[in-house]
Computed example of a mutant assay.
Amino acid sequence: MKKILLVDDDLHILQLVTIHLSQAGYDVIQAKHGSEALERLQEEDIALAVVDVMMPFIDGYTLTKEIRRLYDLPVILLTAKSQIEDKEEGFAAGTDDYLVKPFEPKELLFRVQALLRRYAKEDDASVIKLGQTIINKRSYEVKVGTKTLLLPLREFELLAFLASNSMRVFSRENLIEHIWGLDYEGDARTVDVHVKRLRERFTNLTEDFHIKTVRGVGYSLETKR
């Protein structure tokens, strides 16, 4: 059951929206202001946040910026304001959608469902799983079991590209074109250096994959069958 964080200092809104989202199968986590919302975010695995703009302590714009800085989840802003300048401020803060009060709870539900579908599709496309190894192209992280690695950019891009095309052989020139670009003026042997570094990082860490040298051709990432 996906958890929705609902942040509003209006108890009527909290109760009304909670009823409709709960009936649709979501687990609603309530917070009455921004500070409490940040606590809930630390405690719970939140899939989406619905945030009121006008709140004490931390307003919705500021809270949205904090969510954007710390988490990767969609945000819907609720506000009584409908001026274009207010919407501009909301989108500048990083909100994914904007709903003006008063609103129909069903409309909010439709927007929640649409955003969750969109994020799910993005997650599917951005996450590569090789056994217990997870390569996340959005966060640029590689997780091997409980260990998280942050690789230098070119190493990450090379690993992600090979993993996305596992069991295919690429020449050094192919890899230079895909990772470094057509205007790269360095030696194609830079690929060898990056492959060597990746092997040093992962050979003793996981058996989920290995980067094989195909003599006279280039490299291929092979996965454990």
Rank of each mutant, 00 (worst) to 15 (best):
T146Y: 05
S220Q: 03
L149K: 09
Y140Q: 00
R69M: 15
Y184E: 12
V127W: 00
E173F: 10
G60F: 12
Q113Y: 01
Y184C: 14
N204Y: 01
L78I: 07
L77G: 12
Y184Q: 11
D187H: 10
D97I: 10
V144I: 07
N165D: 06
E85F: 04
V75D: 14
K137S: 09
L153G: 07
E177I: 05
D208W: 02
G218S: 08
N165K: 05
E185Q: 08
V100C: 07
L162A: 11
H20S: 03
L14E: 15
E173G: 05
K137F: 09
A125S: 11
V195A: 08
R215P: 07
R215I: 11
Y98N: 06
L16V: 01
K32T: 08
K81A: 13
L21C: 10
K32G: 07
L116H: 01
S164H: 02
D192W: 01
Q15T: 12
D192P: 08
Y61T: 13
T64V: 15
A160V: 02
Q23E: 08
T206R: 00
I29S: 07
L162D: 14
E155M: 11
H178I: 12
R40P: 06
H210K: 04
E66H: 03
R172N: 04
K101C: 09
P74Q: 11
K224H: 03
R118L: 07
G131H: 12
V75G: 13
T64N: 11
I58T: 10
A120C: 09
A37M: 09
D124H: 05
F202I: 08
S126E: 15
I84M: 13
D72R: 05
A120G: 03
E141W: 02
Y184H: 14
L198Y: 10
Q15L: 09
F91A: 09
I76K: 04
